[in-house]
Design a binder for these strands. Structure first.
Lengths: 198, 198
DNA sequence: TAGCTTAGCAAGTAATCACTTACAAAGCAA
DNA sequence: TTGCTTTGTAAGTGATTACTTGCTAAGCTA
């Protein structure tokens, strides 16, 4: 019976929760499994969070504070659009790899949560990602780096599929997807689509 | 108390199941809700399928028979690669729109099902989609339509994100995504990435 | 060391899950 | 009309869910 301060346990619980969502899916996330993974009883979980919902909301807090702030910083930096887009994707992808359950949690809660607060926060995260990508693309077109006949919206839509392509890739080919290579390959293709014709 | 032949009820059940998965998510799919949606009691469901699992397997049968056969036909046709890729995406996307729960069902069961038969069939569907896309791309490169420096695998990976981009799009912007426009826009971008440089 | 707060456990709770049982009646074939 | 199969219902089943309760003891502060 090991005692730890609540801040430490909260982090352990959030980490274990994401691991379960990643390896077994949201529909297999139960407080029983979670307690087992953390190494405490179910009762102990509720000493640190008042409900399962609060655990998930606390994870969303982290996404907003860490991922979204980083993406914002990259999108607003003064590097070239090409560089910004590459770094944007790298930050995005490496966060999703470090926090593997996030993609499924984000996507399935954004689409299907009964909880309207949770749902709208998830939607906001997805929407903000897309808006930031649009900003970079718009800048690149306005600055003459990319083709002016492109529709920003469509490029951003294509971009939004990439992090999930990675997820499909990890499912189809679990042995290994090299993060950096993945980003380089995808950016290389995106860049081809973006560059000026002729 | 309306009586219908089992074949009719089976179709009603599968349709209702996909509607629930689409609107409320897999984690909100219960036999109670399903029975309510079909308009019968829970017991009646089990007259037509021996388990919830069998209902889902029966849906997978349909995906294999309808979607995968259509995709195969398009991929193997003798049109130009450009045309085949466009028609491939259109068939793919319109099937997912007609059967809206399929994407989430496919994706989340492929990634996280406890049921190894179900899981491997879902993975096979995703993998076959990717292989067929690769065939079209490979043909286009070999036939001189597209740039020979492209890596087929990477283009197929990017392609696989498109149907899910559509799903994100439907979540972010539920009011309407025009199927045909969506396909045209995405193919237009893909085509830019694929065409020969200079 | 005394006392208080905190973090843990064991054993519950009601609600919900997929699924079953016993029985009724619809509808067709003889 | 008789009798059998099929499709339905109502009311269960045990298992599992998120969460609570009552109690214990660890560990800091005075």
């Amino acid at each position: 019976m090991e005692r730890k301060p609540t801040e430490v346990r909260q982090e352990e619980i959030k980490k274990a929760l994401l691991e379960i969502v990643d390896t077994e899916g949201l529909h297999n996330l139960s407080t029983r499994k979670l307690a087992e993974k953390v190494g405490v009883t179910e009762g102990a979980l509720f000493r640190h969070f008042k409900s399962k919902r609060e655990m998930i909301l606390s994870i969303v807090d982290g996404v907003e504070e860490v991922l979204m702030k980083s993406l914002q910083t990259v999108a607003m930096s003064d590097a070239s659009s090409k560089d910004r887009l590459f770094r944007f994707l790298c930050v995005h992808v490496s966060y999703l790899i470090e926090n593997k359950g996030i993609t499924m949690l984000l996507f399935s809660e954004a689409a299907h949560s009964n909880d309207s607060e949770l749902k709208s926060r998830m939607l906001n995260v997805l929407n903000t990602q897309k808006q930031l990508a649009k900003k970079i693309i718009q800048d690149g077109i306005a600055g003459g780096e990319w083709d002016s006949s492109l529709q920003v919206e469509n490029v951003a839509t294509l971009y939004m599929g990439i992090p999930i392509s990675l997820n499909i890739e990890l499912v189809l080919n679990p042995l290994g997807v090299n993060t950096e290579n993945f980003c380089k390959k995808m950016i290389c293709l995106l860049e081809r689509a973006l560059m000026k014709s002729k």
